[in-house]
Design a protein around this nucleic acid. Sequence first.
DNA 1: CTGAAAGCGCTTACAG
DNA 2: CTGAAAGCGCTTACAG
Lengths: 353, 353
Amino acid sequence: MPTTLATERRVTITDIAAACGVSRATVSLVLRDSPLVRDETRSRVQAELARQNYVYHRGAANLRRRASNAVALVLNDLSNPFFAEFAGGADAVLAEAGYVMLLGSTGESPERQQAVLASMIEHDPAAIILSPAEHSSHERLRQVLARVPTLVFNRAIGDGGAGHDWDFLALDNRHGARIATEHLIALGHRAIAFFGGHRDSSSCCERRAGYRDALAAAGLVADPHWLVECAPTRLEAASRTHALFARDPAPTAAVCYNDAVALGLLAGLAACGRRAGADFGVVGFDDIPEASVATPPLTTVATNPRERGMQAARLVLERLQGKGGPPRSTVAPARLVVRASSLGSPGQSQGKP
Amino acid sequence: MPTTLATERRVTITDIAAACGVSRATVSLVLRDSPLVRDETRSRVQAELARQNYVYHRGAANLRRRASNAVALVLNDLSNPFFAEFAGGADAVLAEAGYVMLLGSTGESPERQQAVLASMIEHDPAAIILSPAEHSSHERLRQVLARVPTLVFNRAIGDGGAGHDWDFLALDNRHGARIATEHLIALGHRAIAFFGGHRDSSSCCERRAGYRDALAAAGLVADPHWLVECAPTRLEAASRTHALFARDPAPTAAVCYNDAVALGLLAGLAACGRRAGADFGVVGFDDIPEASVATPPLTTVATNPRERGMQAARLVLERLQGKGGPPRSTVAPARLVVRASSLGSPGQSQGKP
DNA sequence: CTGAAAGCGCTTACAG
DNA sequence: CTGAAAGCGCTTACAG
């Protein structure tokens, strides 16, 4: 029994109006719940709407009203649980407020980002939430984002973010990395590495700054060899683990750029016979779901991506209500979650100066 | 320096036409790359489009053409990595084909599902991909989905799915559970539980059927006490672990409804002093990212959610090209990924009959 | 309280 | 090769 697909003509307010013997204007008023319509008329129209299974065409209404109730979310990568949670949180708030979510992902490519944004914008979103790809060009983004209220999330745009044209929701990278580092110092570590990330990414810079803050406050100074870059993936991190121990003095613990790197480091340590949490202290960043089930469970800095998504959506909604006003920056707090991976005792290692 | 928001009037084809001294029709033809336009005219128009930073209003065009280039994706829960990966895969294929993705989530609530679908449909998507909430009503879905080509993913709708009105993409639950069970049998297990899920969900039924198939083929019969229900979450599973050992004969291994349940079981086993992989064999279902980093690494049935998302999107695109034809069902293959959690030796346990 | 009319930004026959 | 006109489905002053 073949299904009937979208072949039949659409039911419009004209059909309803004709069936009820009223004008299209009246039907429209009923749809928008206007008090101008007499009760008896309203009921008749509503009954007919239901009978014909009428579906409101919001696109047509939005065109006429020059409004939009879509918000576009453009992310780097949905398969990253951090962004998936973020999207889930944003969706919950937006749906609650009656908005629909357009979703796109850039795969961390500035070119795809331009294409995706251009495509989104043709659909006339009321606002855009953008977690920018690394190496995004401020100029090219300005071009395509002109006219659409935008909230940038997670990292500042290319050239530093001074003179930002957009609202900005940042993680407290600097403070988060600082408390992570302080935690390792409190455990007795003195030789602490910063592992992973690329130093040209703003979040990596900020986290490194927090790391240095903590060291400086404790009167420690970082050996340059303790700053090890690598792509923020588990695999890369595992294969770069050896770089931490290439020279003396080797570190006894590491603050990692994020959890993916930290999980890779856990694997890398195991592969070279070191026990994370016993021989070597590890702290991650993000608190992704895998962190708590890793071996050993990963101490990390929680950024609560779902909360961030909700917060981003709320900031956007405020902007849409209030209009106007200069761009605002908001910094979301970070919190340390202590688990087994950081309970190493530095004395067992040779890393002490 | 306050940003200029979407306050200025929009640039339309009328503006471009006026600036070039041509008609709006000509501008439209240029936009759609029609060969009807003379080269010289085309260049002039294109230059003006760029100069004024013109943005195509796809909503208006779609209204006029009675077309749509949006596809709606309605999922249970984005923070479930299975669905996040699925969405990522679908997005990649849809974006490639020039479609934009509307995303909504239902949180497994049939009421929210109705509301979300209704809201989506008002935006006139070309098609819908729906991973239905449990206990969805076939009738209510029919009502709201009338007229929109729909692909149902992951589970059949409420009353069994006979006389399905929609395309359907299923995981091979039955075969997947069967190979999982056969694997445990091959390792020497004879007392094998099926742990987790609710028996009124179709995927749970199918997986249990595959489990029974394997037992029957090996001449084994399941003790009814080995069928333990629980919500498909890690926490629930951990706290229900004791139910497996409440009566003799206790099982020596378990096929789990999914990875979340299996991870909870790993934790539950550890909490009651049993070593998964040594004292007790565990197999999951899904191969979520956490599976490979669990302790011990989780043997599981891979369903490749990203691939499924891409497949779902392709099926939808085919339907949109081809139109017509009866609804089709597709079953995606499942594959066993062997890791440490299933290497238990049943002889160490008391569970043998 | 209700209707006639104009218009949102675009496309598409139809003439010329 | 280009333009005038009608129309997609809706909303909103404006009369009455």
